[in-house]
Simulated assay, not measured.
Amino acid sequence: MPLHRHVQGQPPARRAGLRRAARRLITVVAAVVVGAGMLVAPAHAAPSPEEIEAAIDKQWEQLEPTIEQYNKVRAQLKKDRKKAEELQKKIEPLALQTELALNRVGDMASRYYMTGPSQELGALLVSAKPDTLTEQLTYLDRLAAQERRDLQVVIDARAKFDAEKQKLDVLIAEEVKQEKELAAKKNQINAEIKRLQASMPKTSVKVAGCPTINGVVSSAARTAIRVACQQVGDPYVWGATGPNAFDCSGLTQFAYRAAGISLTHFTGAQWNEGKAIPRSEARPGDLVFFFSDLHHVGLFLGGDLMVHAPRAGKPVQVANINHMPVAGFRRPG
């Protein structure tokens, strides 16, 4: 007898029991297959906060040069605007001088238009006595020479004015170009920082103040160290120069400004604004620079320590200088 006929001939209770048994078997087999797959698939643990921080630090190494380039352009723009103001001050008296000279020429032109130089010469000759003719001709020659000098004053003043104005126009055109570059860089930096901050672990960072400084430290260096250490815990904000937020070169500029020493808000400029010091002779208060392109700087405290503004998400803090490749030391002042 065929099997299906045999099953169909079984009682309903018997058939229902077989179906339940089959479903249980299928469920068991599926669970075994899935379990086996889970055992074979490699496990991927979530990255630790330390690993995330290390990854962000690596990306920041690529971003910080762009930030310092922005600082460079902005510092140059500040200098250019000062030059533009100085040129404008030079141009103002030149413009007045040109106007006065043109007025003199206008007076001469009006006089000659009304009387004519030939009439003036004729009047002198008619009234002249023979013994005074030479003197009168000399007077006319002097008068013509004075007019030529007046004309030359106009020409010279105008040429000088035009030259200075051309410098100013070039400077202003360069400023407009720089401002556009700054806007583009600012948008780029903000977008990148926003992306990095989205992946930063939400943890609070507690940092200790600066250690006691011992050794030979100049008065300016003491002031700079004191001021920089007072900023420990302040947030990093790119482009900031204090008093409540800083980027790396903004912090060193702020600290040394308090000591009466002017530094440019750009790591590359600060490198050239101090005296080169070998690492073996570095003293507290020296600036310590990092990476081959000098895109990071801190204030050396001695004992392989520095106070610096690390990056977005990390406040001003004391850190070991050996965590980054040291490029060299400079002593401001």
Rank of each mutant, 00 (worst) to 15 (best):
V326P: 07
E86D: 15
A41M: 14
I321E: 08
C210L: 00
Q317N: 03
V207T: 09
Q152V: 06
A109E: 04
A46S: 13
A224Y: 01
V288A: 11
I193P: 08
T66Y: 11
Y139I: 13
H323M: 08
E92S: 14
S292W: 15
A43W: 09
D304H: 02
K72Q: 15
K82W: 05
P211N: 07
R74Y: 10
F329N: 00
V176I: 12
N187Q: 14
L196T: 05
F289K: 09
D162W: 00
R226D: 14
V307I: 01
R19A: 05
T138G: 08
P211H: 02
L294F: 05
V105E: 07
P47A: 05
P325H: 08
L121G: 14
L133W: 02
H295L: 13
T203V: 05
G302E: 01
L100A: 06
R14K: 07
A159W: 03
V207P: 00
S219H: 12
L18G: 09
R15I: 01
A22I: 01
I213T: 06
V232I: 14
R23T: 03
L121F: 15
G106S: 04
Q188W: 09
N272V: 04
G239N: 12
H296F: 01
I277R: 01
V153H: 11
G215M: 03
D286Y: 04
Q136H: 09
D150I: 05
A22Y: 02
V73W: 12
G303P: 05
K89A: 10
K177T: 13
R111K: 07
G37K: 11
F254I: 00
A228G: 08
F246C: 00
K72E: 10
D57G: 10
E147W: 15
V288G: 13
G242L: 01
R74C: 07
A220E: 15
K275D: 07
T267I: 00
K167R: 15
S127C: 10
V176T: 10
T264E: 12
L77T: 09
A21L: 02
D247C: 04
L182N: 12
S199R: 11
P2M: 13
A95V: 08
K90G: 07
D162Q: 05
K83M: 06
R226I: 13
F266V: 04
H4M: 15
T241Y: 00
L18F: 08
